Amino acid sequence: MNLRQVRYFCEVVDAGGGSAAAKRLFVAPTAISAQIALLEQTVGGELFDRSTRPMQLTSLGKYVYPRAKELLLQASRLEQEAKQVANGSGGWLGVGFIRSTLFSLLPNVIKGFREAHSEVHLDLVEVLSEYQEERLRARRIDVGISRFIGTFERQADMDYNIIIDDPFWVALPVDHPLAKRAHFSIRDFEQLPFILYPKDTRSPFGQKILTHLDEKGVRPAIIHDAIEIHTALALVGAGLGGTLVSGSITPNNRRDVVFLPVEDIDISTTLVAVTRKGETSPLLEAFVHILAKQAGESIQ
């Protein structure tokens, strides 16, 4: 299967027949017939019912047609964007991000970047920190927005740009008695069920929190193990318990959750921009600069 075959097939459908499609494409009708026959050979069945006049799509043809149109659209977009990158009038930047940055940080970063580089296509991929280096090696993304607790393993083929040190805050149900305080002590988790996240075998994030609490002599009851932070906060809002979150996410529009600074906690999170070692570009540098600026403002 090639794009010419797909294009000729779609043109026959759109034009209502092979002869009309040939006129539109400025080719001989026999060329149309030959390409359609090759496409049918590739997909393993007839795309048109040739016993009718005008020809009608078979069930296979009806399946292939909308997908073929989408394929042509994607190919056209790829061609256009590639030409923009080649002549310097546009560009493409793949960004991997963790879900917690969706609360306030990432939308502002995207807005700021688009205002400065409206011609650049941002390809946004939600992916946990532990998977971002794989995406970088596969060149699926150009920068990963990661979050770690304490020290973390640095791969030799990656660069790590520390964006901010992001202290922990507690998330509490708005009507919980502890929510009326100015600060929260980690010992209060002994009377408050803990909601753990993210639920992923490769992420040590939640376990590092529990290890630190255990070192402080605090062993909270784990009542829920949430897949991701949005779910965890929804459970907090439902009154099922509390959890710890990074301070940069606390400016959000949830009305059922209260965020308080945490006393006597000795760990924090670090927001990191991860890139392929030694690789840089004006677009990448601009994105990381805007990320650092917005992150700094988010914790002031």
Rank of each mutant, 00 (worst) to 15 (best):
P204Y: 01
G247M: 10
G239D: 09
I222T: 10
I162P: 03
S268E: 12
F168G: 02
A182D: 14
H212Y: 10
G206Q: 02
I163V: 08
F205P: 00
Q191G: 11
K180M: 07
R254V: 15
Y160S: 08
D175R: 10
I229P: 03
R255G: 15
E153W: 04
D188R: 00
D256P: 12
F205R: 00
K208G: 01
L235V: 12
V174N: 04
G241C: 01
P261F: 11
V218M: 08
P261Q: 03
L192R: 02
A182E: 13
E263C: 08
S248H: 12
P198M: 13
L244K: 00
E228Y: 08
R202S: 14
I249T: 08
E153D: 14
D264V: 03
A156L: 11
H183W: 09
S248D: 07
I162M: 13
S248N: 03
P198C: 04
K216V: 06
A221D: 09
E190A: 07
F189Y: 06
K199V: 01
P177M: 14
A182M: 12
P220E: 10
A221H: 12
Y197V: 01
D166P: 10
Q191T: 09
T250N: 00
S246D: 06
A221I: 13
H176E: 09
T201Y: 05
L178E: 12
D256C: 09
V174K: 12
F194K: 00
L192D: 00
L244N: 02
D166T: 08
E263Q: 10
Q155V: 07
S246W: 00
D200K: 05
D200N: 06
D214G: 15
H183I: 15
D166I: 06
N253D: 11
H183F: 14
I186T: 12
L244M: 13
D256W: 04
Y160H: 05
I249P: 00
I162V: 11
